[in-house]
């Protein structure tokens, strides 16, 4: 079993200035990192800490904060049987690099985040809406989007 402190140490050594803080909540390890270093962090975690699967990739909208979006990456390591949560904050309109090159599973998950929260992923090979149709206005999971939706100009064909 790799300790969180070991992962942090290695990460601090190889990706400079990326780690902001870390915590353990209810047995879940969370690392907060700089959004601009996300690809380097993920590549390091995959290659050196054997986190070989991206279980989930999602985002949360904390409306009212200065940096309102928080990206959440949940990783799993088969070898060590442990999970790791990596978080990074983004301001409205700020872009983050895609981690499609690290795990292919990120492709659709990033599309979903783009669709529902409107976060742009730089370098994504196919950034289209996945659940709603092209031409849909607004991003439903944003906290300022009304539950019952807004009238749409285009319908799905």
């Amino acid at each position: 079993m790799v300790q969180l402190s070991q992962i942090l140490e290695g990460l601090k050594g190889s990706v400079e200035g990326a780690v902001l803080s870390s915590e353990t909540f209810r047995g879940q390890d969370v690392i907060r990192v700089e959004a601009s270093a996300i690809v380097d962090v993920m590549t390091y975690l995959r290659d050196n800490c054997s986190f070989d699967m991206l279980t989930d990739l999602t985002a949360v909208d904390y409306l009212g904060r200065e940096k309102r979006f928080e990206m959440v990456y949940i990783l799993y390591s088969f070898e060590h049987n442990r999970r790791l949560h990596v978080k990074a904050t983004l301001a409205d309109g700020e872009k983050i690099a895609t981690i499609e090159g690290v795990w292919k599973a990120a492709n659709w998950l990033e599309r979903e985040v783009y669709d529902l929260l409107g976060i742009h992923f730089e370098g994504h090979s196919d950034l289209r809406r996945i659940l709603l149709w092209d031409g849909y206005e607004g991003h439903p999971l944003r906290k300022d989007f009304p539950l019952k939706g807004i009238p749409q100009k285009t319908t799905y064909r």
């Binding site: 529902l116 996945i130 659940l131 709603l132 439903p140 539950l147």
Partner: peptide, 15 residues
């Protein structure tokens, strides 16, 4: 092409 059964569960659960 998916999302033909996207009913907005997450948004609903938030409320």
């Amino acid at each position: 092409h998916m999302g033909h059964l996207h009913r907005g569960l997450e948004k609903l659960a938030e409320h």
